[in-house]
């Protein structure tokens, strides 16, 4: 008899589970849309990372807008160069128009040379392509020097 009751219970449950599956599919769609909507609304795609790195200006050209000891947080793509539309404008005769960029990706930070004439130095070595950064690294562009701080 116990088996019969089990089967009855199963027969009762089957159509309910069928409808449940449909409901869950739509719940998933609703949730996905909700997250995507938030993501569209907030606009800026890159969220602030927990432990953001920063660039400390160690030395700069005389009369440039960069002051020694000032800190630039790396919370998005930072472009460096002589042109006015860079995020960090370098008043440096040895810097190219668009010299380099520094950006966070996944859980790491990278520096990338943008085919500059005089190159970018990371700890006295030329940067080729993109190179991951670590705290304490020194980046040199022309005579301007930055230190990566955590």
């Amino acid at each position: 008899m116990a088996g019969d009751i089990n089967m009855d219970f199963a027969d009762l449950l089957k159509p309910i589970l069928g409808v449940l599956v449909i409901v869950i599919i739509y719940v998933i769609i609703f949730m996905a849309l909700r997250i995507m909507y938030k993501d569209v609304k907030s606009g800026d795609k890159k969220k602030a990372l927990k432990k953001a790195y920063g660039l400390e200006v160690v030395s700069a050209v005389e009369g440039s807008n960069l002051k020694r000891g000032s800190i630039i947080p790396i919370n998005r793509v930072i472009t460096l160069g002589r042109r006015e539309d860079n995020l960090v404008v370098l008043n440096d005769p040895y810097a190219s128009g668009y010299h380099a960029k520094i950006y966070p990706k996944n859980t790491e930070y990278f520096v990338e040379d943008l085919n500059s004439t005089n190159g970018t130095l990371l700890n006295d070595e030329f940067v080729e392509g993109k190179v991951p950064l670590e705290i304490g690294d020194e980046i040199r562009i022309g005579v301007t020097r930055f230190r990566v701080i955590g």
């Binding site: 449950l13 089957k14 589970l17 069928g18 449940l20 599956v21 869950i24 599919i25 719940v27 998933i28 949730m31």
Partner: peptide
């Protein structure tokens, strides 16, 4: 929700 879908389908 995806777990729930998985167990609802395989549960039936």
């Amino acid at each position: 929700a995806t777990y729930a879908l998985c167990f609802a389908m395989f549960g039936s």
